[in-house]
Design a protein around this nucleic acid. Structure first.
Lengths: 224, 224
DNA sequence: TAGATTGTTAATCGATTAACAATC
DNA sequence: TAGATTGTTAATCGATTAACAATC
């Protein structure tokens, strides 16, 4: 159960592979939908059919974190949902700020569901004085110059970075200096931060290029 | 060179693994940056240091598509950039529409660089009559009721889907019926479309949950 | 108890890394 | 030619799938 005994000496947590982590939110989403449908229990086989992954993978993935099921019964849906939520840290509240109040920043700031999942937006920042004080769901847009003082006062863990590439590196450094622990990076570059700072990238242009690749391959097949 | 001879009989294209495709846009981005710096040639070893992947992986990845390098020299940066661009289909123009003119849809519609990469936004649609006719970079917002006729007349390959989960499935079906070949899906569900239709998902909430997981693990480590 | 289904070990598959002959 | 670096084969590593004993 998550514990490795290496050579009978050091005891440490087995780290979970990235592939597994990537799948967890999808399990969580499907379980949420099952709850909405009022379904109480599900077997790995039934879930397998719904999600189009193997039942074996589901059981392996879940067992990284403990035995959530029961032989002969399957998995209790609300229980498993809650447990995965805990694993993902959705049972705790995290405070988030948004740097860059352009369309994308505003889209994030307006997205109501984040708060339901424990991500509370406590500030929105921009350099454009025109935006100063404009309110997005109760958060007046603040100027970047106020950022360091704000971070000293408030307890903020996450910063969403929705600024142009040109200023992203500099701002990331500022964020780290002021104690930000995780950056949700929408800028088109790889951030260079200390290894204890978490970076989660959302590179929209790379996503579009992957779509483009698959579309192009399909088009070429068509031509034959 | 991309051709497999299976048993001396059927000759077919070797399909490229998803892992490789996922890395291609990142190579493309780094090569673009090297061009901006005026760098003419680079070895897999130098690129390896910059990108923090192994040189071996770079060579393997590129060789899926052909021999772009030269022994004793390395890779010519502008040439490789162009070739990867071709592989990704960025040398052709694709027409894209955006369904859903909320903040996220508007953010995409306003993003200038897509057009530079060959993705031309030719229409923006919404159901909200208040938005009708409002112009986003030359595209007046159209009503969803106009969509089928629009798609019959215009040549559109890609649809970006930035609508609420509740209407996404239905709209996706409408898009497919009217000949859309690829959907860039921002809605929080898995679309059910024919297998010749390409779907590229951007699930922001899942991305945030992965960040949350990593942050939570880090916080727990800290507590010790 | 018999049937169902998990948890978990073993087997397979695929992706990454290492090594080196080919060649510029 | 000698040195550098690719293209490519072989070795390793990790992730997925299959199988089945444990157990509810």
């Amino acid at each position: 159960m998550c514990i490795l005994n290496t050579g009978g000496f050091a005891v440490e947590e087995k780290s979970i592979s990235k592939a597994v982590i990537k799948r967890l939110p999808r399990y969580y989403r499907y379980l949420g939908e099952l709850i909405e449908e009022g379904i109480e229990r599900i077997s790995s086989n039934e879930l397998s059919a719904k999600m189009r992954v193997t039942a074996s993978q589901i059981r392996q993935d879940l067992n990284n974190f403990g035995g959530f099921g029961q032989q002969g019964y399957g998995y209790n849906v609300p229980y498993l949902y809650e447990e995965i939520g805990k694993i993902l840290g959705l049972d705790k509240t995290h405070h988030m700020i948004i740097i860059g109040a352009g369309n994308l920043g505003q889209a994030l700031a307006n997205y109501v569901k984040f708060e339901k999942r424990g991500f509370k937006i406590v500030g929105v920042f921009d350099i454009n004085p025109v935006l100063k004080g404009i309110s997005i769901r109760g958060n007046g847009i603040r100027m970047m110059s106020e950022l360091p003082e704000f971070l000293q006062k408030e307890d903020v863990q996450i910063a969403a970075l929705t600024v142009p590439k040109s200023s992203a590196a500099e701002i990331a450094e500022l964020l780290v200096q002021n104690g930000i622990k995780a950056i949700w990076n929408f800028a088109h570059l790889d951030l260079n931060v200390p290894k204890d700072v978490i970076v989660e990238n959302v590179h929209l242009s790379e996503s579009l290029m992957r779509l483009s690749y698959n579309l192009t391959v399909a088009e070429q097949k068509e031509e034959k």
